[in-house]
Write a protein that binds this DNA or RNA. Sequence first.
DNA 1: AATAATACCGCAAACGTTTGCGAAATTGTT
DNA 2: AACAATTTCGCAAACGTTTGCGGTATTATT
Lengths: 328, 328
Amino acid sequence: MNNTTLKRISQILEISISTVSRALKNHPDISDKTKLRVVELANAMDYEPNANAINLRTSNSRLFGLIVPGISNFFYDSFISSVEEESRKNNYALMVLQSGDDPLMELNNLKLCRQNRVSGLFASISTQTTNYDPFLKLKDMKTPVIFFDKVPDHNGFNKVCVADTASANMAAAALARKDKKKILAIFGDERLLMTRKRLEAFKETTAKRNPSATITYGFAINSQDAEGITSTYLAQKVDAVFCMSDEILTGAMRAIQKQHLRIPDDIGVIAISNGFIPRLFYPEITFVETSGHKLGKLAFSSMMACLAGSTFIQELTIESILVEGGSL
Amino acid sequence: MNNTTLKRISQILEISISTVSRALKNHPDISDKTKLRVVELANAMDYEPNANAINLRTSNSRLFGLIVPGISNFFYDSFISSVEEESRKNNYALMVLQSGDDPLMELNNLKLCRQNRVSGLFASISTQTTNYDPFLKLKDMKTPVIFFDKVPDHNGFNKVCVADTASANMAAAALARKDKKKILAIFGDERLLMTRKRLEAFKETTAKRNPSATITYGFAINSQDAEGITSTYLAQKVDAVFCMSDEILTGAMRAIQKQHLRIPDDIGVIAISNGFIPRLFYPEITFVETSGHKLGKLAFSSMMACLAGSTFIQELTIESILVEGGSL
DNA sequence: AATAATACCGCAAACGTTTGCGAAATTGTT
DNA sequence: AACAATTTCGCAAACGTTTGCGGTATTATT
């Protein structure tokens, strides 16, 4: 372990600890001469301030917690990447925790955050989270909590989300423009607010803009599930398939390729996506972009606003754009 | 912030701080009666031990640092996910840091790790890292450093890697078995030890097992690069393309799909991969699996061995297996 | 030359824990 | 009843910082 402390330096230089501390912080009370002596010795001795001591003394950990169901996910990894980058730029570190979509693990992670006195928390909740008390406990401790992506269906929280309603609308509208009439629309877990929002918007916009269309709804828990659903319904000659997420898109694409259907001639495809998966194929899949990167930046700025004292609860969304591939 | 401390509890109960501390740890010196009183009040007051104070006192942060060029990567995200999971199970937290493949940022991150007195470090180095002193500095502080994936070409470090040589051999052998004669082999950045190992092995095994084959070599910095290279050489009627990594595979696949080539009839494809991307296509791409998940487990166990006192420097590799898709 | 201002530095408390050691109270032993 | 053993607890130091306050030197002002 690193042994050089302020005390050690002070002993060698025969000055007080406080002088050493101030010298290293370039405090005006200290003369240039001693500053120099201190800084030089500190460098020579590889002095590294002990973050734990500083945190204890100042009660500011400069550490953010981030809880997410899983890291391995096209959306979350770019979100995390973005938040980490911003945090680092602002001299914060990031503690990443996975819940595995398990509410119990989520609780454990929250405890860890509390014990580490995180300066703030970014959280995407598990599918089955119903008790928000632990989050409220953090808020009571004046620790900002920014929910993202999978957010509680509940007011009084800071949330940053992709524009669920708007993006589902855009996708439905795109299908309407292309005059797709038999649509297979696959959604995720219905317990998620996100799913319900997208579902409702998609249904509504299709009814309005594409009244003669018939929609077959599918609900998939995972990619494999989506593949199964797609395979099943592909038999009944659908014009196009809408995928609510990347995970679903991957399943749908497997089914489509397996049946040797040509995109877009035999079937149209559109998804709500981060953009990575759609660009893996040719023609590229048309998608409504929901950028994890952008969302991360937004979440971070929201966090900074809270830390700066804003007590204003806001629910922010990033607008999404339609990125045309050749799949419709 | 959470205000309840041992001191507060001790004042209310009119006992000493040390008694409270010991009671909460179920220390035998404390009577059951007082233990009960303490535990109950602690719960009622939502007591959470202050990790910073504990770390300071015990000089054990129970925090691992993890430095990686970027999180958004098929390999790293599963690696990180795995390490995080293991860490959490063992009561460690994980601080994730990205270098952006920039040696300077890497230095900053290392400093952060030192200042936070991490209990250990997992590191995948940047392409241009040449100075290993900061890593050695950590080792001198008795902080274990486990390099993974992109490791220094240098002895005396703990490293865990995918079996570069073996997996390139396997891929070359698979191509030989299928009697592919005109091979396009695309590799990554030559400055990486990993690349050089894979290149050499691929070349050697092909020469031995498939002597009549001709290999065209390509070196791609990124996916787009790989797409360009593939497009260019596809014209000259190659039998199969070998991709050293997922990133390269995505580029190659774009080029192949764009030219409407049928896999495996028109062209064979094989890659070294985590397995996610290959399964997105149909037929699935045949690949030599290098599991980030497995590597994460290995890295973690290596870390635990070091923490347990093992001073033995080891270079571990996970064996890879060939996963047959239908692309060859 | 006396006084006022300024530059420079140290004392000591505090942040919230852990832990070795000793002390008091209780119980057991003869 | 005297002593020993055991149970139960508190004292105080330590971990490495930060910071308000006060105290000497030194310099400036008249």
